[in-house]
Amino acid sequence: MTEPRNVVLKVRGLSVFYATPTGDVRATDDASFDLYEGETLGLVGESGSGKTTATSGILRMVSSPGRIVAGSVELDGVDLLALKEEDLRRQRWSKLALIPQGAMNSLNPTMKISAQIADVIRTHTGKTPPRDRILELFQMVGLPGRIHDMYPHELSGGMKQRVCIAMGIALNPRVIIADEATSALDVVVQRVVAQTMAKVRDALGVSMIMIGHDMGLMAQMVDRIAVMYSGKIVEIARVADMFARPAHPYSKILIDSVPSLTQRQALRITGGITHDPRNPPKGCIFQLRCPYAAPQCREPQPLREINPGQLAACCRAEEILAGTAQAREIADA
């Protein structure tokens, strides 16, 4: 697992802020990570931690009042954030596809399913795809051919999600971003759709960023996990490392919060006050709620390698891994 691999997507210092009357909300702040060829990276964090904002930054689709403040997103060495609009349009979907968050509303209600897949192929290749190509895509994601001439309202939620997957792989992109692609579905359909996604990914060898907050699903689907808290990436590690020995206190709490089948225990969430996202604390982003907070946490905490392949933004990561760090009690907010 440690052999050097090609980096497909290189995100550096990506910051996306939302303007509000009382100052900028730092939704995604100085996010950096690499996505390797054929790898699936999971991006997790609680609601509002900036996962979706980060992807809209990568796709350069931040809409007002949001804006990309800084950073670069290099896809095969081309910085998407520096491209001219027309060049960016050509890169979209042919290189970087999206499986959207709300598949229920992601299809145009007045267009046939097949037409919505055909139009993206036609736009980027200049050729109208033959019917067989569309049917082949349907087959890859387990959809029946009869939906070819149907409209979105005639399909179930799970089917629409599959249509979105079929659409995503239509041009064999380098990277697919799946933004909570299964959150809106019930657990049974969720599992099937996740399996479909995994199958397609393995068949095509495409790199993937999976966003979600379902740690169980992540554990099965991804190679590495990046944990976000309040706009910052606080830890990146291989799935096994992340679950076995998280180095950042927040990752630790997040993983402890996954309910266990064998042990019944109360949900432990750390107390303390979440800071105002317009005015984050100096230094570590998590210091106000961190049970291990120390005076040195007021210094900036960049991501640093703790172990090979494991990066964490915590000055006490080694102590935490060794189990020597003393936890403090935090009063509930």
Binding site: R92, S106, N108, D119, V120, M167
Partner: peptide
């Protein structure tokens, strides 16, 4: 603000096509 218009943009479709086929049409 509909998701399908956002996705159309992510698909890299031509702006005019999005205007007619995805926005005005609906």
């Amino acid at each position: 603000g509909e998701d399908y218009v956002k996705l159309a943009e992510a698909k890299g479709l031509r702006p005019r096509y999005i205007l007619y086929r995805y926005m005005i049409r609906n």
